[in-house]
Nucleic acid binder design. Structure first.
Lengths: 248, 248
DNA sequence: ACATAGATTTAGACGAGTCAAATAATTGGA
DNA sequence: TCCAATTATTTGACTCGTCTAAATCTATGT
């Protein structure tokens, strides 16, 4: 039968409650800026400069300058001239919503459509802007509301609160001789992730830190070999001490 | 790269062969025009006029005029001044690719994410432009390469050939007293589909044609009631004679 | 056959998002 | 302190997709 089933289709009329103050449309491009600001802010703990954003998004500084003015007008960022931006509460909600879409898509693609965890980022990056709240909720449900995505990154739940990420520490901050389990490999481009996967670094992998960052290099021992990782890559890997019952 | 913030499409791992002559990027907007031309052409069997397209897409005639000029430059349509357009072979491939994405998405949403068949069109319309060939192939595989979508429309297969649609006839061309089974309800906006679903008309439903189009109206009897349908709606419903072992 | 209603195209403008070149503010060093 | 180097912003221009108004083509009816 051709699926006439109306199941628990819920909300026929109104889609979902407003989460942001202004419900103006936000373009996919704007969403990319907001995502970037969120990521850089999280990463550096500081206001995000025009040039950092330009770098991250691979556009020129003037382009960023004009866009953050628009974002400021819409109340999504807090802009101080010549001092960079931070997200407002509204802006952060937007970021969390995109993050939720992105991470749910990644989870879905790996778990239900057999994608590899290194292969999933670009697809999610394109789709995240076009997924409705309803669809992401359905995906979450189908996956049993997972707390983390395939890279170990926490997935904001339906009300956009971010699950506690645990007390993992950056690999670069680990000490020589530590035996650690990888918790998260920050979701970057496919190429970087493929490199790490080849190096034996993925969520759940157990590493021994052999040597730490003499010249921005860090060496770890994986089950199969000894690997050197650039420190700026190691910054994006978070680990917890290995407990004995966790290795296998 | 810098450009549209979207379209990373390419194929990093050499995912799939080129299907079109020119592999220039086609924007989501262009794709909508091509989809529309395909639909109107199929529907009327004639060259598609500027105004028909403007109507269909809800833009003005000059907008269409300039866009079809671009489509013609890219070799996707065959344009004759003041005489409308038809798709070239290349244009038809684009249309079929979008159609495949759209119909696979609809199938997936209904079968795996519990969407109702009337509810699925808008979501698919947004996503279809951002789904990679790889993803649609994975979806097709996960669904067992279905030949038709939830509305009964045929899904182009991986090499973009359209499965034989059978010998269904438009409901409006049926005769009084015919007992028929709905094969396809053309995929229009959610509102129209909801109306039809409420009227008891969906793929697989069995109808008796009570009265045909005296004043552009047609009356059918569904299991639950007698329903009048405007002829232009009935044109979009395709039926086959009911065989006795098919009703239940 | 020809005037005219109707459809189509052309012309000009605009907002979004981008860039390069020019200008302005900030910061760090002498 | 003051100036040079760095970083940010402004300016002007370009593409894309859209619009309105105006010009032009087609087709129709008498």
């Amino acid at each position: 039968m051709t699926g006439d089933g109306d199941r628990g289709d819920a909300d026929p009329g109104g889609e979902a409650p407003e989460r942001r103050a202004s419900s103006e449309v936000i373009s996919a491009v704007m969403e990319d800026y907001i995502k970037a600001i969120y990521a850089i802010e999280r990463d550096t703990g500081e206001r995000v400069s025009t040039s950092a954003l330009a770098d991250y998004l691979d556009v020129t500084a003037p382009t960023v300058s004009s866009m953050i003015k628009k974002l400021a007008e819409r109340g999504l960022v807090d802009r101080e001239e010549y001092k960079g931006v931070t997200l407002t509460d509204d802006g952060e909600l937007v970021a969390l919503e995109i993050l939720r879409h992105h991470r749910l898509l990644e989870s879905f693609l790996t778990e239900q459509l057999d994608y590899s965890w290194v292969d999933v980022h670009d697809e999610a990056d394109r789709l995240e802007h076009h997924v409705s709240q309803k669809l992401s909720d359905r995906i979450a449900e189908a996956l049993g509301n997972p707390p983390v995505d395939p890279h170990g990154d926490p997935i904001p739940d339906a009300d956009l609160s971010l699950p506690d990420a645990g007390d993992a520490v950056r690999l670069v901050d680990a000490e020589e001789g530590d035996r650690v389990v990888v918790q998260r490999v920050r979701d970057q481009g496919d190429a970087e992730l493929r490199y790490l996967a080849d190096a034996g670094v993925w969520p759940g992998a157990e590493l021994v830190v052999v040597d730490v960052a003499p010249f921005d290099m860090l060496t770890v021992e994986t089950p199969s070999a000894e690997q050197s990782l650039p420190a700026d890559v190691a910054r994006l890997i978070e680990v917890e001490p290995a407990t004995d019952d966790e290795g296998a």
